[in-house]
Write a protein that binds this DNA or RNA. Structure first.
Length: 597
DNA sequence: GTAGGGTTAGCT
DNA sequence: AGCTAACCCTAC
């Protein structure tokens, strides 16, 4: 079996199709942005955001695309100073962070990077000035403004405007924010030209009116293109063709008494193909073994990260994990067609199984659909051990835990599903508490595999075949709910156990896992979001950033793949943001201590 | 870049 | 006050 076929076989249909959908919506989002239809852009990013919490075929260019979406989302909301993607930064400050990531990953010329950064900063200052936020404008000016000589004039002007508290000036009227947005889009498009998505290609080929006026041809070039696209997008086309061929061949050979088996025929074709080096045959019958390295994991998904056995687990721990998984407190929700995929094991508290919504606070600020997703992911990651439920805790404890569970819905990486800066006033959007921000946040993720050396890029990326391998993306959301009393009542934690470290190991582990999920710490708000922002800013200068479940899972997966100690490699292989290699190392140490791994 | 001890923030 | 996860510092 070739690496290609191997990869394909390891992917579920959902992963592949989600990938197609992802590519399509990224394409559409960019188109919308280009057309200045920012509402549509926000809708598309919202779809993408929701899509990537599902298993998806993590292709190398996916991170690039996500970064671009991340960047443009921040740009799109950059004139809304009360939004934050990454506290305490303004959207445009976050855009600078994303820009740095993009530049790091995609080898952008330093001058271009500086130009874009400067454009963002200048725009941010102008936005601040127009809004009368002079202090913030000054902060930005001091912290970020270029010291280059050619910027000196502007700097002086801004200083002057700030000093004089002037929110109107001809300079401020010169450039519109819309122009700035388009300038940033140009930058992105120069950097990375998103190829036409596979779904659109297929639609065109189907002759669907309105998609393309181009005639659908069956030229070898066209077929080749389609095959290449299919291969690039998961190899399904080749597989399906082969499968269909087999079936048809089987029927026909029986009917006509052909004694040559399909496999034999295939081998002959391959031999011919080798002799003729026909690319079409290559693609059409690509089950031929190829000397390609097996991708470490082709379709890494969030859920797989959570569920996959950790190869580093000791046998005993594996057994323990096994026990947990098969515990009666877990139910298995088939993930659609590939229900054999162990991705969506969803442990549910027995007392709550009657109704998912019972776990959600009335203050739930997510839409029902999002709610469900969040819920699934939360439990999926929570790893609550059976005895937590079985040992029927005192009612106060139960209540406390219940609260935690409610909180968990708002945190623990459960994604940016909760807010959308495009709808700051919508009920489903994040609202900022009037109190000091003690939001909970979560980091949601799209996990993708980009192996060093590009070994996973077996389906070459047309637009950027040699793209930097370690690209990262991040998505998270800061969640705040007025009805969640985060501030006046500190997040309830599992009641403390005063047991010795040795005897309390299980408790500790349980508690830690629960904490991981439930976001009992108030400072889960410093995380950045992929596309969504929260309104409001934290007044805190610094706060600890608790590790989300997803980050921990990335770490586990990273250690599984690269081994403990390769923190920098792990860091760069997953979309961590705001985490250093040392942070990873420390977290791993903590996880070991808590026997989370 | 990593390991490991020390420090601190944020909690009960 | 005590605990602990996250963070910091420093040697290698």
């Amino acid at each position: 079996m070739s690496a290609s076929a191997s990869k394909v076989s390891s992917l579920s249909d959902e992963q592949i199709i989600n990938r197609w959908g992802f590519d399509y919506y990224v394409f559409k989002a960019l188109s919308a942005f280009r057309d200045a239809d920012y509402t549509a852009f926000t809708h598309f990013t919202s779809i993408i955001e929701n899509l990537v919490v599902r298993p998806v075929d993590g292709h190398s260019d996916m991170i690039v695309k996500l970064r671009c979406m991340q960047f443009l989302s921040r740009i799109n909301n950059g004139d809304k100073l009360d939004l934050t993607f990454e506290e305490p930064k303004t959207p445009l400050e976050s855009a600078v962070s994303v820009l740095e990531s993009i530049c790091r990953d995609m080898s952008v010329p330093p001058r271009e990077q500086e130009r874009v950064k400067q454009a963002i900063i200048e725009t941010l200052i102008m936005v601040c000035l127009r809004s009368g936020e002079f202090t913030r404008a000054e902060e930005v000016l001091l912290r970020h403004f270029s010291d280059a000589e050619d910027s000196a004039g502007k700097k002086k002007l801004f200083e002057s405007l700030i000093r004089r508290r002037r929110s109107s000036h001809s300079v401020l009227q010169l450039s519109s924010y819309a122009d700035f947005k388009q300038d940033m889009l140009d930058f992105i498009e120069r950097l990375y030209r998103v190829p036409e998505p596979f779904l659109l290609q297929m639609l065109k080929r189907s002759g669907h009116p309105g998609v393309s006026s181009e005639p659908v041809t069956s030229s070898s070039q066209d077929r080749q293109k389609t095959s290449a696209a299919a291969e690039h997008h998961g190899g399904v086309c080749a597989r399906l063709s082969l499968h269909s061929l087999r079936q048809v061949y089987g029927v026909l050979s029986e009917r006509y008494g052909v004694s040559v088996s399909f496999t034999q025929l295939q081998q002959e074709l391959e031999e011919e193909q080798e002799q003729e080096e026909s690319p079409e045959l290559h693609l059409a019958l690509s089950e031929t073994p190829r000397e390609q390295p097996e991708p470490p994991y082709a379709g890494m998904t969030i859920s797989r990260l959570v569920q996959e056995d950790d190869s580093q687990l000791s046998a005993a721990e594996e057994e323990e994990e096994e026990t947990q998984i098969s515990s009666p407190h877990r139910i298995v929700i088939p993930s659609g067609p590939d229900s054999d995929d162990p991705e969506v094991r969803t442990p549910v508290r027995r007392s709550d199984t009657h109704n998912h919504s019972s776990e959600c606070s009335p203050a739930q600020i997510c839409t029902p659909a999002r709610h469900t997703q969040k819920h699934n992911r939360i439990v999926l990651s929570s790893d609550v051990e059976p005895e937590d439920h079985a040992t029927s805790p005192p009612s106060s404890r139960r209540s406390s835990r219940h609260k935690q569970q409610q909180k968990s819905v708002h945190s623990a990486g459960e994604s940016a599903l909760v807010s959308s800066p495009a709808h700051p006033s919508s009920p489903a959007s994040v609202r900022r508490s009037d109190r000091d921000t003690q939001n909970q946040s979560s980091e949601s993720e799209c996990v993708m595999e980009v192996e060093d050396g590009g070994s996973c890029v077996q389906h070459s990326t047309p637009a950027r075949p040699s793209a930097t391998d370690t690209q990262r993306h991040n998505r998270s959301v800061t969640v705040s709910s007025e009805s969640e009393d985060h501030n006046s009542s500190p997040a309830p934690q599992t009641p403390r156990r005063r047991s010795s470290p040795s005897s309390g190991g299980a408790h500790k582990r349980r508690r830690a896992r629960w904490q991981d999920v439930s976001g009992t710490h108030e400072n889960w708000s410093d995380e950045e979001s992929l596309f969504s922002a929260t309104s409001g800013r934290s007044s805190k200068k610094y706060s600890r950033k608790m590790w989300t479940v997803q980050e921990s899972e990335w770490l586990k997966e990273g250690v599984r793949r690269f081994g403990a100690g390769h923190w920098e490699k792990i860091r760069s292989s997953f979309p961590f943001t705001g985490r250093t290699a040392v942070n990873l190392k420390d977290r791993w140490r903590t996880m070991l201590k808590l026997r989370l791994v």
